[in-house]
Simulated scan of single mutants.
Amino acid sequence: MPVEDITAAAAGSWTLGDHRVHRMGFGSMRTTPDPDTRRAVRVLRRAVDLGVDHVDTAAFYVSPGGTLNVGSGPARYATELIRAALAPYPEHLVIATKVGFAYTPATGLREDASPAGLRAQVEENLRRLGRDHLDLVNLRIVRRPGRDTVAESFGALADLRDAGLIRHLGLSNVRQEHLDEAQAIAPVVAVQNAYAIDNRGDEDALLRECGRRGIAYVPFFAIAGSRRESGAGVVHAAAVEAVARAHGVTPHQVRLAWTLQQGPHVLAIPGTGDTAHLVENIAAGAVRLSAAELAPLG
């Protein structure tokens, strides 16, 4: 089958909250750096055309500028790009967003987990997306050594859920004790942490625990790995290169295939601002690695 004909359905599906979504989704972070936001709109529309029904974003994904007028001026936020590209939204589309940081031109990103700050970010997401509720809100925290707590922040989001502004809640950049604490307050449908072949840390145990609890585990930086915000690299481990050659795919596709094969509850959200890369990423959902191929990958 031509790679352009492979859809997100090839990756299988998972029930995220009350929606069945394809396990291959789309992350919107990398749509914002390009000052020509028309390209981002094309990528987002192409993603949905290819069956993506889970789009990840955040209140703090912001562009240095923009050329697409969305009603109130040039688009600067990923949430504005999503609205420009996809509204009116398909009924099956789940938009997951993150709150917990605030953006100001003077300070850039900073943590702001106060209840008032979280409510302001939820309302900002609603306004920029043009929605009356948010499908899924992940509380993004700064993970600190030792004991810390998400109780106040997660409780504030649970109150907003009870008020009808949010349908489902998740967590981002957390440890298992944060998950335990949050689940005692309200249901958690997703955990979104950094996880990749070469950037696993101690995440394997949390990934498995999420599976036992029926919670989606959503890795970010699955392609970038330890490069994180710097993006996908061109140098890969020999084992990744060997598997890529055997399947006739790219090393980046092997990394995504490996990610999806870590469990049926694992959802991929690779991001890109390029339609050709988007097609390759989605096609990775059709790559199946054997046990012998998975073993050297770790």
Results as ranks from 00 to 15, higher is better:
residue 54 H to N: 15
residue 219 P to D: 06
residue 63 S to C: 03
residue 166 I to N: 05
residue 81 L to D: 03
residue 213 R to P: 01
residue 112 D to H: 15
residue 102 A to K: 10
residue 216 A to K: 13
residue 98 K to M: 11
residue 122 V to K: 07
residue 85 A to N: 03
residue 60 F to S: 08
residue 82 I to C: 06
residue 14 W to S: 00
residue 12 G to P: 07
residue 224 A to N: 02
residue 187 P to F: 13
residue 191 V to P: 04
residue 258 W to D: 07
residue 161 R to V: 08
residue 179 L to D: 00
residue 278 L to V: 10
residue 59 A to E: 15
residue 213 R to N: 11
residue 4 E to R: 14
residue 104 T to S: 14
residue 22 H to G: 01
residue 120 A to Y: 05
residue 178 H to V: 06
residue 209 E to C: 00
residue 47 A to M: 13
residue 118 L to K: 09
residue 99 V to Q: 07
residue 98 K to L: 10
residue 143 R to H: 12
residue 269 I to D: 01
residue 60 F to I: 14
residue 39 R to A: 14
residue 147 R to E: 14
residue 142 V to T: 15
residue 127 R to S: 08
residue 16 L to Q: 04
residue 127 R to P: 00
residue 219 P to I: 08
residue 124 E to I: 00
residue 172 S to F: 13
residue 238 A to S: 13
residue 30 R to K: 15
residue 204 D to A: 14
residue 104 T to F: 04
residue 219 P to V: 05
residue 278 L to G: 03
residue 24 M to Y: 03
residue 250 T to W: 11
residue 279 V to D: 11
residue 202 D to C: 02
residue 35 P to N: 07
residue 64 P to F: 10
residue 126 L to S: 01
residue 180 D to L: 15
residue 293 E to N: 03
residue 48 V to Q: 06
residue 210 C to N: 05
residue 192 Q to C: 01
residue 77 Y to R: 12
residue 66 G to W: 11
residue 33 P to Y: 13
residue 141 I to H: 07
residue 90 P to T: 09
residue 222 A to S: 11
residue 34 D to E: 13
residue 186 A to M: 11
residue 187 P to W: 13
residue 193 N to S: 04
residue 162 D to L: 06
residue 101 F to I: 02
residue 280 E to R: 11
residue 207 L to A: 02
residue 205 A to M: 10
residue 243 V to T: 11
residue 33 P to W: 15
residue 241 E to N: 09
residue 14 W to I: 06
residue 178 H to P: 03
residue 207 L to I: 12
residue 182 A to N: 07
residue 135 D to Y: 07
residue 86 L to V: 08
residue 284 A to P: 04
